[in-house]
């Protein structure tokens, strides 16, 4: 390849689109591997087709339920479910964000000594790897059924989420402002307030609103394992095969998520 060759000898007469993966061996190995996986993977599925076809009828009932949702017959339970979900969302976001700030500072390379850094980073890793549902199962076993366990679950998840993103943001702040503050003889808290907080505040607000959104969605799920909220109501409705009530609950969830998404998007645009 090192010898000099004319362009005409190397380049084909007709242009071809360059392949997505340059190395042809790797490319073909990937194609063959993917095809093999598909054959084996789909072949090993254990699907009870008779049951699935039977279910189509039920699926149709469900579609009808969506077209004609039933809000009235379980109205009280729906209200309590959403009340639990919404209060859980607000309290867990507030506490989670408040607790995430010290963790984020501890997990920022430029502000914390190594042992604090490692401690905070491992806490963040733990909180982010554990699925909310699994955390909820354990907290329900410890704290009993109901929204309090859900509140703790979401708080735990919020700390990991916020602290990781905020720590990354803190690590990228302008170092000269830190130095300027330190040069005035400011204490640690004063440095945090004037050099760090003022630089990361817009992102903190934006992320908090985003997390509020996520927490509501999650609050609709953790009820399935007993941690309160609308998920519990939905689970009960499904267990009773009340598809029209389930459809009503899902429609309300979608509506709230949409409102929350637009509001938080609007707020973030105006704050930043």
């Amino acid at each position: 390849m090192t010898s000099v060759v004319t362009a005409a000898a190397v380049l084909p007469r007709q242009w071809r689109r360059p392949p997505f993966i340059a190395n042809s061996r790797v490319r073909w190995a990937l194609y063959v591997g993917a095809a093999l996986y598909l054959v084996v993977g789909i072949g090993s599925l254990e699907v009870n087709w008779a049951r699935a076809i039977q279910g189509l009828e039920r699926g149709w009932v469900f579609v009808l339920g969506f077209l004609n949702p039933n809000f009235t017959s379980r109205w009280d339970e729906i209200v309590i479910g959403f009340q639990e979900s919404l209060t859980m969302t607000v309290t867990s976001t507030a506490l989670g964000v408040a607790l995430s700030i010290p963790v984020a500072v501890g997990a920022a390379r430029n502000l914390a000594p190594t042992w604090v850094y490692l401690l905070c980073r491992s806490f963040i890793a733990l909180s982010r790897t554990l699925n909310e549902i699994i955390v909820a199962i354990f907290l329900v076993a410890m704290f009993g059924f109901g929204p309090f366990a859900g509140f703790l679950t979401l708080t735990f998840a919020t700390i990991g989420f916020m602290a990781k993103l905020m720590a990354e943001d803190i690590e990228e702040i302008e170092a000269s402002q830190l130095e300027a503050l330190r040069a005035t003889g400011a204490g640690y808290l004063q440095v945090l307030d004037f050099a760090v907080l003022s630089q990361v505040m817009p992102r903190l607000v934006g992320l908090s609103l985003y997390r509020l959104d996520i927490n509501f969605r999650e609050s609709a799920v953790i009820g399935i394992v007993g941690a309160g909220g609308i998920g519990a109501t939905l689970n009960t409705a499904m267990d009773r095969y009340e598809f029209d009530t389930a459809a009503a609950i899902i429609l309300v969830i979608i509506a709230i998520v949409m409102v929350a998404e637009y509001t938080s998007g609007w707020l973030r645009k105006h704050i930043q």
């Binding site: 699935a52 039920r58 609709a220 939905l234 979608i254």
Partner: peptide, 16 residues
């Protein structure tokens, strides 16, 4: 807006 666990809840009821 709907978590996959809720989708699963619905689909298990429908498809088994």
């Amino acid at each position: 807006s709907i978590n996959s666990l809720i989708w699963a809840l619905l689909l298990v009821a429908i498809l088994g």
